[in-house]
């Protein structure tokens, strides 16, 4: 029928709903196993961290971006290149702190939360906390320690989903001995 799409599938892409529901299955399983929102948040962040640590290599290999000169440039790369590349969305960078070491990513259509409704009694759960971990892990691999947390979440009735990234320090000890 007319609904059949004829475009050739891209082997570098995966159906978004399969991804979303897979993530949902994970969060549901974690909630069943830990029965505690904070613990689930921690687990999600840990898994995200593991993902970020590995994802950054793929990112550097494919994106052709060069070293960022300042944190503002980093913010742009995260929003316009990394998010676009891996989740297919482009968050808006905003709410810079005066010192320029802190900003927000405003996500309009978080692909992780399609089909999701947060049941009552889970006010502390940061459903998409995996993102925080992934950002932290990836940034750490490029010698930046950042703090990432959810400030607003559409799942909780906010107008927008807001991730806050704060630069903490440059990691200097990442170069293996004998190099450089």
């Amino acid at each position: 029928m007319s609904r059949q799409s004829s475009r050739a599938p891209d082997p570098r892409k995966v159906n978004g709903e399969l991804f979303t529901l897979t993530y949902g299955a994970l969060v549901a399983q974690l909630l069943k196993d830990y029965e505690d929102d904070d613990e689930v948040n921690r687990q999600l962040e840990k898994m995200g961290y593991n993902i970020g640590v590995r994802l950054i290599e793929d990112f550097l290999a494919r994106s052709n971006v060069s070293r960022c000169n300042d944190f503002r440039e980093t913010a742009d790369q995260i929003a316009k290149v990394a998010f676009k590349m891996y989740l297919g969305v482009t968050p808006v960078v905003s709410n810079w702190s005066a010192a320029g070491d802190e900003f927000s990513l405003l996500i309009e259509n978080n692909p992780l939360t399609d089909f999701v409704e947060l049941p009552d009694g889970h006010t502390d759960l940061n459903y998409s906390n995996l993102l925080c971990g992934a950002l932290k892990g990836a940034m750490e691999m490029v010698q930046m320690e950042v703090d990432v947390k959810f400030v607003q979440d559409q799942l909780k009735g906010d107008n927008i989903t807001e991730l806050r990234l704060k630069f903490i320090r440059r990691l200097e000890d990442a170069v293996p001995a004998g190099e450089d």
Partner: peptide, 29 residues
Amino acid sequence: KQKPSNLDKVLSKGRAEVNVATFALLFSE
């Protein structure tokens, strides 16, 4: 705060895609 309900949203056409690396790493976790 009013939580959004799935029933109030338009059902997407399901064309959205994500990078295979994102999925692979999530599945690995």
